[in-house]
Design a protein around this nucleic acid. Sequence first.
DNA 1: TGTTTATATAAGCAAATAGTTATATGCTAA
DNA 2: TTAGCATATAACTATTTGCTTATATAAACA
Lengths: 110, 110
Amino acid sequence: MLDIEKVALTLKLLGDKTRLTMVGLLKDNECCVCEFVEVFQMSQPSISQHLRKLRDAGIVKEKRKGQWIFYSLNRENESYPLVMTILDHLPNQKEKLVCLEKAGKRIVCD
Amino acid sequence: MLDIEKVALTLKLLGDKTRLTMVGLLKDNECCVCEFVEVFQMSQPSISQHLRKLRDAGIVKEKRKGQWIFYSLNRENESYPLVMTILDHLPNQKEKLVCLEKAGKRIVCD
DNA sequence: TGTTTATATAAGCAAATAGTTATATGCTAA
DNA sequence: TTAGCATATAACTATTTGCTTATATAAACA
């Protein structure tokens, strides 16, 4: 159970098509900034700013791997269960990553 | 399963503390505009504008009873299941109505 | 009928938002 | 060390948002 302020903040952040899709993509994957830039056809600073908002709220976390910074859902965050139940109402965003892969633009590390 | 635009719109509307609390209050009750004005200590036009946004999105519906207009959740709306699962993560807002009742400001019809 | 009560709409304004371009930072590899 | 790629931050701008006050609409009631 979350307090209403926290829920409102989480919903406000996910109430943006770009950020909601980002979180949908992160449901089953890690992604780096340049992959998002490719998927959304949007400037890199714009993507970074969206990710920063999600990170500041604790919804996603980042991990550097060499020159890339990979983002993933933060399962430790108190709003994680809420985020997951919201994603259950969304179609899977996986196809966007499949397209990336076909275009040879998916970044795989380790 | 909803399309991503619809989910983003729903979350954006509920990503406001006032509207989220309104929907929380409507989970188990009907409320009229003047009750919301009392609960939120906010101007009547402001309340009306929030309710209009929720109604335009189909999240709530209205029903006139004499001089009052009562709002309730719209169970026929496709986003209703999403709204309910979100409310499951929120503390019950019932106490606000109990306060109204004690202050003799709850409006009961029929 | 005219007045009161409840609600909606219009118009205006300050703050927040999402994008842009320009620049800074940090890692990699030659 | 320098060049190049990935990412972050800063500064700016246009748009959207949430509120306010003023006014319109609609029902109740004397």
